[in-house]
Design a protein around this nucleic acid. Structure first.
Lengths: 163, 163
DNA sequence: GTTAATGCAAAGCATTTGCACACGT
DNA sequence: ACGTGTGCAAATGCTTTGCATTAAC
């Protein structure tokens, strides 16, 4: 993360929890321990986890949470605008509690996804682009390549077999 | 598609097949009927199909092709730089025979992915952006929203449950 | 002939669904 | 109490793997 975005900080987590309570109340959804635990976990990390990664890191809590619930709750959060599924080239969904405008870089080897601060790039203006009637809700840049850990390892090049 | 890009045209398909033959020879890979059929199918369409969609549209050929082979061959094409997996928010891989610089818009309802001509947007320059050692191979814009078909249907709004 | 590719069946992950029970309001 | 949410188990969807057979060079 860059030093300007609060994603993952304690303040971000508690603000996010407050927002969830507000949105849940507005939509008559229950404030369950599971929802709190899942949102707390997702918003305290910056690694854009899969549903299963979130499940793995909270299942050992006192209460226990089922995998099914993690999938269902994350879907609810997306509908409520509390989280988003981020675009990546792999065949699995990754989630992000930071719904503000920013971009991502996805590692082809370890599949890690890092954030790119939107302020480091000019705004993308799709207003004057012909999209044939497509209504854009959101757009962002996705970079693919090798993260610093993977590019410093020989193993990184195992996946690049041909030329 | 826009009228400047040749993706999907007969010329594009045959040029792509020639390129595949060249790359396969260079890497001592066999020129099989399956590889030809899969590349021909992928490069003649502009809808960014999943592996399964390609399988569905070629399995009724004389020879028959197995699903496994489609998955394996597509992976090979990506390694050879003949195709790319495109970033999208859904939990499945989508392929594109157009490896030139362009962008995508992904429909949240029908999951259709349409192309956005790179010339309609300013270049994205990640050269001066701090990525913490991440090595970028490629980057593009991904828009999410509703395609023209889905935004004209009431059903499109079924997925937007909350506020 | 040798090496690489395919097909089948089975396994492995990722995700969703049906239904009974438990919890939040 | 009422309606919603959860957990379990099973089903489904997407993708990969092992191994014997077949095809390409």
């Amino acid at each position: 993360m860059n030093n300007q975005s609060p994603t993952g900080s304690n303040e971000f987590v508690s603000a996010k929890l407050k927002l969830m309570e507000e949105r849940c109340r507005k939509n008559r959804l229950s404030l369950t321990v599971q929802r709190r635990a899942i949102l707390e976990n997702l918003s305290s990390r910056t690694d854009h986890p899969t549903a299963d990664q979130i499940y793995a890191s909270i299942q050992d809590r006192i209460t226990g949470v089922s995998r099914t619930t993690v999938y269902r709750v994350l879907e609810t959060f997306v509908q409520l605008g509390l989280a988003q599924k981020i675009s990546n080239p792999e065949a699995k969904a990754r989630f992000d509690a930071d719904t503000s405008k920013h971009h991502h870089a996805s590692c082809l080897v370890c599949e890690k996804v890092i954030d790119i601060d939107a302020r480091q790039l000019p705004d993308i203006d799709l207003g004057s682009v012909d999209l044939g009637g497509f209504k854009v809700f959101d757009c962002s840049v996705v970079a693919v390549g090798l993260c610093s850990d993977c590019s410093s390892m020989d193993t990184a090049y195992r996946s690049i077999k041909f030329n």
